[in-house]
Design a protein around this nucleic acid. Structure first.
Lengths: 240, 240
DNA sequence: TTCCTTGGTTGATTTAAATCAAAATCGTCG
DNA sequence: CGACGATTTTGATTTAAATCAACCAAGGAA
C-alpha cells in the first residue's frame, strides 16, 4: 500500500491536464498524498463495473478506456472514450454507485482520487475546488456535443467528427494530430456513434477513397483535414 | 434589487428538490441570502443565450425550459427539458460562458444562484457542497440515458421512454403521473428525440391507437403504463 | 370578418443505414 | 506451424424513418 502511493504529480506528464494550473509545491504535495496509484489494467479489464460503490474519481495516466451504460434489456451504449489526463467516474457521485462500467481498451494505468479526501482538500484549496467543478462542467459539455452528433448528424458526419475529435485530443497530449492509433475496435466506434460495424467499415473505406484519410487496420492518418472537417460540418457555414 | 432578494427557500415548494436535506434554519437563511429572484420569463424568452458569460446556476421555481446547443452550421439539438426544482446552466462553468441557450417553454420563474457566492457558501456548508456535486453528477447520468436513447432505440421506444420520463418527473413534483400537459411543441419533442415532427405526430397517433395513451393537443393521458413501458423497453427483459 | 402565421396531421415516396449473409483477415494459443 | 475464434470487410436486400407535399385548425392582426 505504501508502495502504491508513490505518486509524483509534480513530474507527471499529464498533470497539466488533470491538475489546476498555479498550484504551489506544497499544494501539489497535498494532492500527491491524496492520489493513490491504482494497479495497471490490461486490455478488457474493468476499472469499475456498474453497481460498484462509488469511492472516487480516476485520472487516466496512460492507455485509454471506454465508459458504457447498460440498459435494462441488456443493450449498451458507450458514452465516452477516456484518454490520459482525463477523468473517469463522474457519473457515480449521486447515488454513490456507478451507473456505467469502465473498461481498459489497452494496457492502462490510473490514479485513484478517493472522493472524500479530494473533497476535503478541495475545501481548503479553492483553485482545486474550481478545477473539480470544471471537470464536471466539461464532461457535460462533451456529452452535449455527442448528443448533437447522435441527434442530428448523418453517419458520415458522425464518423468525420469522431476522427477530428480524436485528432485534437491526441495533439493536445503532444501526439501527432494527423497520425494515430485507434485503441477501440470498429464495434466500439459503431456503438459510440449509434451505427453498425458494417457502416463504420464502409465509411472508413469511403473516407479513404475520397482522400480525406488513410486507414490500415487501426492506424489512421488524416490526409486532408479540411475535407474531413467539411464532411463533419463543424466549420462555419457562413462564408459564401 | 432589495425587493428582488425576497427569496424564502424555507417555504419554497421545490426546495426539497433543489436544496440538500437536513440543513439547519440558519443554513437555509444563508442560502436565501445567496439566491436572487430573477424576473419572470414569458414563453420564448431566453434565460441565457449561447456565449453569455457565466454568472451562476438557475433553479427553476415554476414553468419549464428547454436547453439547446447550436452547431457551427446552425442546426440545433435540445439537450434537456427542465422542470421546477431542477437546475440550469451547468454546462457553462468551464470556459465561463454558456455553450447552450435556455428558453422558457411557458411563463416561468427562476432563482439565480451566483456561482461565486454559492461556491463560498458551499465551502462552509459541506452538505451543500456535496449537493452541488450531486447536481452535476445527476446531470451527467441523465445525459447518459439520453445517449442510450438516441444511440440504440427505435423511434417508438424513444417516444415511449420520453413520456414515461415526463410522467415520473411530474409525479415527483406532486402532479398526476398519468395526466399532464406538454409544455413543449411536437417540434421540440422531435428535436430532442432525434426524430422529425411528422414521425412524432404519427407515433403519438399510433400509441393512442394501441391504447397506451390518449392525446388531445398537448394534453396527454397515459392509459396503460405497463404497455408503454414495454414499448420503451425499460423493464427487465429477463422474465420468461 | 378575412387574411396570415404557426403548429400539427396525414399520405405518398425516397433513401440512408440496418440487416442478412458470406468471405477475408488477424491474432493467439496449443 | 495450423486452427480456431474474433474482428473486419464486402455485397445484396430490406426497412424504418426522412423527405416531400398537401392539408387542417387555431390564434392574432388588420
Amino acid at each position: 500500500m505504501s508502495a502504491d502511493r508513490q505518486i509524483r504529480c509534480g513530474n507527471c506528464a499529464v498533470a497539466k491536464l488533470c491538475l489546476p494550473t498555479g498550484l504551489s509545491d506544497s499544494e501539489i504535495g497535498k494532492m500527491e498524498e491524496v492520489a493513490e496509484q491504482k494497479r495497471q489494467l490490461n486490455t478488457k479489464e474493468y476499472l469499475y463495473k456498474a453497481g460498484d460503490s462509488f469511492s472516487g474519481l480516476y485520472a487516466v495516466r496512460s492507455g485509454s478506456f471506454k465508459s458504457v451504460v447498460v440498459a435494462a434489456n441488456g443493450d449498451s451504449q458507450i458514452t465516452s472514450f477516456t484518454f490520459p489526463g482525463e477523468i473517469l467516474g463522474l457519473d457515480a457521485y449521486k447515488g454513490k454507485s456507478h451507473t456505467s462500467y469502465a473498461e481498459a481498451l489497452e494496457t492502462s494505468s490510473v490514479c485513484a482520487l478517493p472522493f472524500d479526501q479530494l473533497e476535503s482538500l478541495a475545501q481548503r484549496i479553492p483553485a482545486l475546488q474550481r478545477h473539480v467543478y470544471s471537470i464536471f462542467s466539461e464532461e457535460i459539455q462533451q456529452e452535449n456535443e455527442i448528443l448533437l452528433l447522435l441527434g442530428k448528424r448523418s453517419a458520415e458526419m458522425r464518423m468525420a467528427a469522431f476522427l477530428i475529435n480524436l485528432s485534437s485530443r491526441y495533439s493536445q497530449r503532444g501526439y501527432s494530430a494527423s497520425q494515430f492509433h485507434l485503441s477501440m475496435s470498429r464495434g466500439d466506434i459503431a456503438n459510440y456513434l449509434g451505427l453498425t460495424v458494417e457502416t463504420v467499415s464502409r465509411l472508413l473505406n469511403r473516407l479513404q477513397k475520397t482522400g480525406a484519410i488513410s486507414v490500415t487496420q487501426r492506424q489512421v492518418e488524416i490526409t486532408n483535414m479540411l475535407a474531413l472537417s467539411e464532411l463533419a460540418g463543424t466549420h462555419c457555414a457562413i462564408h459564401d
